[in-house]
Structures are given as structure tokens and as C-alpha cells.
């Protein structure tokens, strides 16, 4: 029963996640950015932009300039998340890649930093009046969801050890449409349930910042508006425009 429920949930969540993100990203892709609105000083070459973007997504350069506390918590949170994701690949692939094996010990303990980073961000949301003012209920719930994912994961890893081989069999089974039973421990169900929520919520929420940042025109454009002519797609070319009549022909 639970196996079926979770199996169906994960099929649905995966489809929503993939199709949803693809749909949103397609929306960003096809929407024109008529003028060059890059925030300057900005790189004047494509390579420069790649470097700027790399610093932005890998080191949160702008956030570093902005607020050290948010930077520390966000960095802790996101770096751990990446390690955790890499480590979790082992439940989907067989044989396990070397890089995933190498990440294993770090990924295991990254869970603590993940939760700590999340708590830090949550704490700021409560304590800093300015941030509290801009927070909607969904903003708190979003962090609580991540903390819940982290805590349940830590519980399975360090306290109430789960039959992880069976969990892997479940996911491998999902991938090959040959369902295997899911161990029905509470931490597992909570953990996987929340991760499914995460996948479903992603394309409808601010989590879109992850793919979205790459489309940000203030960051990803080359500072070359004088050199590169970029016509506005919905305006007629200059050869077809009528100019205003000569000066002084009308006076208010």
C-alpha cells in the first residue's frame, strides 16, 4: 500500500518537477530581452560573463558584498545541499561512480551543516524585523521543509538506521518499472514525502531561482550595447518609422 502510494507519488513528482521546470525555463528562454540592461561594471567579453556568472553561482559574490550573515548561512546551506545530492546519487546508479563514493563521507556529515544553515536562515527571518516584514507563510514553510528533510535524513543515517539497501532497491525499481517494497520506517516516509513535496513545489515557487539565475539579464549580458545592435522585436525598424515634425512647429 505505502509502496504503491510512494511509487505513484514519485512518478507524479518527477514529472511535475521535470516538465514544470522545463516549461518555466522555456518561458524565460523565449521571452525577449530587448535592451542590454546589464548591471555595470560588467564584463565586456563573453568569457568575462562566464566568469562573473561562475563567481555568482559558486561563491554568491553579490551576496558577499551585501550581507555576510546571509552569505554564511546560504553558503553552508547550498554547499551542503550539493554534497548531499551527489552522495544521494548512489541510490539511483549501479555501479556507484567514484566521485559519488568520494563524496560519501562528506555528504553524510553535510546534513548537519545543511540543517544548521537552514536554521540560521530561519532565525534571521524571525529575528530581523526587515526580513520578517517581507516573509510570507510560504517562506517559513519552505525552510521548515528543508529542515525537515535534513533532520529526517540525519535520523535515518545516524540514529534510526534504515535498511538503505531496500530503499535503493525501491528507487532502482521505480526507474526500471519493476517496483520493490519500500521500508515503512517513519523517518524514511517523512524524508521521502518531503522530498516529493520539494519536487512538486519547485516549478511553482521561488525555488526557480536555481535555474533562473542563469537567465538574469543584469548578470548574464555582455556590456556591449554600443557595439552590438539589438533591435526591439516588437518595434518596426528605423527605416519604417515616422519622425516627429521639426522643432518649434508646435508650442504648448
Amino acid at each position: 500500500m505505502i509502496t504503491t502510494l510512494y511509487a505513484l507519488l514519485y512518478y507524479a513528482a518527477t514529472i511535475i518537477f521535470v516538465v514544470g521546470i522545463a516549461y518555466r525555463v522555456w518561458g524565460y528562454w523565449k521571452t525577449p530581452q530587448p535592451a542590454n540592461i546589464v548591471t555595470t561594471p560588467a564584463p565586456v567579453t563573453r568569457t568575462g560573463v562566464v566568469w562573473r556568472m561562475f563567481k555568482e553561482v559558486a561563491f554568491f559574490e553579490s551576496l558577499w558584498k551585501s550581507n555576510k550573515w546571509i552569505w554564511i548561512f546560504a553558503m553552508m546551506f547550498h554547499l551542503s545541499l550539493w554534497l548531499i545530492i551527489v552522495r544521494h546519487l548512489r541510490y539511483f546508479i549501479d555501479p556507484v561512480w567514484t566521485v559519488v563514493v568520494l563524496a560519501q563521507p562528506f555528504g553524510k556529515y553535510a546534513g548537519f551543516f545543511f540543517v544548521l544553515g537552514g536554521l540560521g536562515l530561519l532565525f534571521r527571518r524571525f529575528v530581523v524585523a526587515r526580513v520578517r516584514y517581507i516573509s510570507a507563510p510560504s517562506d517559513y514553510l519552505m525552510i521548515l521543509m528543508f529542515i525537515g528533510i535534513g533532520l529526517s535524513g540525519l535520523l535515518m543515517t545516524f540514529v534510526n538506521k534504515t535498511d538503505i539497501v531496500a530503499v535503493k532497491a525501491f528507487f532502482r525499481g521505480l526507474m526500471t518499472f519493476n517496483w520493490q517494497p519500500l521500508p515503512a520506517d517513519l523517518p524514511v516516509l517523512v524524508h521521502l514525502g518531503l522530498v516529493a513535496v520539494f519536487l512538486i513545489v519547485f516549478p511553482f515557487s521561488k525555488l526557480l531561482h536555481a535555474p533562473g539565475v542563469f537567465f538574469s539579464p543584469t548578470r548574464n549580458m555582455v556590456d556591449n550595447p554600443r557595439e552590438k545592435y539589438r533591435p526591439v522585436p516588437w518595434l518596426p525598424p528605423v527605416s519604417e518609422v515616422t519622425f516627429d515634425p521639426p522643432h518649434g512647429s508646435k508650442q504648448s
Binding site: R24, G27, Y28, T31, P32, Q33, P34, I37, S62, L63, S66, N67, I70, A74, L121, R124, R125, V128, R130, V131, Y133, I134, S135, A136, D139, K206, L208, H209, G212, V213, F215, S216, P217, T218, W234
Partner: peptide, 23 residues
């Protein structure tokens, strides 16, 4: 939303981190 990528994107991706609140 259909004419300006900036507008479309910026409406979606703010995470309310608060970095701008004092700027």
C-alpha cells in the same frame, strides 16, 4: 511578461533573502 525577460524572471525568482532590504 511576454515582452521583457527581466520582468518575467524577476517576478518569479526572488527568494526573500533580505539582502536588499537595507540597500
Amino acid at each position: 511578461r511576454g515582452k521583457f525577460r527581466s520582468f518575467r524572471l524577476f517576478l518569479d525568482i526572488c527568494v526573500k533573502c533580505g539582502a536588499c532590504t537595507d540597500k
